[in-house]
Write a protein that binds this DNA or RNA. Sequence first.
DNA 1: ACCTGAACACCGTTCAAGT
DNA 2: ACCTGAACACCGTTCAAGT
Lengths: 234, 234
Amino acid sequence: MRAHSDAPRSRRERPAKPALTRAGIVAAAVEIMRAEGLGKVTMRRLAQELDTGPASLYVYVRNTAELHAAILDELLGTVHVAAADGDWRARLESVLASYTAVLFEHRGLATAALVARPSGEHYLNLVETLLALLDEGGVPSRQAAWGIDLLLQYATATAAEHTTRDESPRVRAQDEWDALSGALRRASDQTHPYVAGLAAEMLSGEPEARLSWGFRTLINGILHTPVPADGSPN
Amino acid sequence: MRAHSDAPRSRRERPAKPALTRAGIVAAAVEIMRAEGLGKVTMRRLAQELDTGPASLYVYVRNTAELHAAILDELLGTVHVAAADGDWRARLESVLASYTAVLFEHRGLATAALVARPSGEHYLNLVETLLALLDEGGVPSRQAAWGIDLLLQYATATAAEHTTRDESPRVRAQDEWDALSGALRRASDQTHPYVAGLAAEMLSGEPEARLSWGFRTLINGILHTPVPADGSPN
DNA sequence: ACCTGAACACCGTTCAAGT
DNA sequence: ACCTGAACACCGTTCAAGT
């Protein structure tokens, strides 16, 4: 409850329509996303929230893709970049897990992140942290430079995988998993001996265990795989 | 030009409207996708192509997501699963490259593939091949079972990354790359020393070289990272 | 059972016209 | 320069009614 304000009394008490700014637009977009999911963050809905028409937004935002990228940049600010303690591997895993958690929380944004990669300050901080940790672990710098992409892409794709299109809740995710698990289990050991033999293994493991194994696998791979000599910048 | 046909003359010469079937619907969807991109494969457009109303499609297809998954199953049939020669690593890479190429060719389908994972016969064949190759390389079976996901997800995500939303051509992809590369190059070596120092390395390498390095990195990681003991099936 | 017209409830984006 | 009403050209999905 606002006590009083210096705003001219000639205005009505309800908050005056604020001037449009890029920051204000992105902030409103984040708010809608938190409240109702990314699927509701449309130009029209956003314009309505800002008490204007959709056309007005195009002064500040090139298109919907750019809007989604801006939302993501904003969210990356909440990634826990200063991981607690433990050796470099543990801290690296922890930062990556935090990044993954942010994307999991806002399902749908991960899919956007794969296509429209962020490039803001928060993203830079994240990359800086990851490079520092890899250096601490003695990972050769060129492998670290290429490896960053692999690690972030894995986290992003994993979050995206668990995103059932926009909202449609548990149902479809379950459907698809059943379809896959059914197909694997039904595989004939005549035509698909490996699949038949390993179906249970392929479907085993808690998501957290698999995510963690994935990170460790990538880190080991990065550690053991030299980047080819060439590498001309492009 | 058809010479003559056994069709009753009472019908007009133009092909009689064929009965709707799931297979026919999927086939028409694939055709539209090949000709105009996945973005044009909409229920309404598809119905128009089949000379009916969109509501009719819902008798055979639950929703748009299921339609996209069906298209993908179809396409997976063109993956070169029987790789030429070379050691198991080379053949493994070649199968994965073929899978990636299919998704690259039909940009946008990769994004769909991350969310709606395929589970058809073609997918099973691909998984069988990959498991056989990993076994040939002496990869412990549990690591292979979990590793498959990593390899296919990497290929899928990489294709998805290069997919600029639907169609909007080179322009935006270039935009985003410039944004990222600009941000990396502009990074201050005071606040982001690692990023500043490694910007060139991070942006280096041809896409093919990076894809190949990614596959090798994953394979090495899978080879070196044991799956935790537990692994209860769920 | 299968099919469909019509409607409901939306979209992104552009552009000429206003201030 | 910034903002906007209105339009253009679409969407997915449902449902009552027909055959």
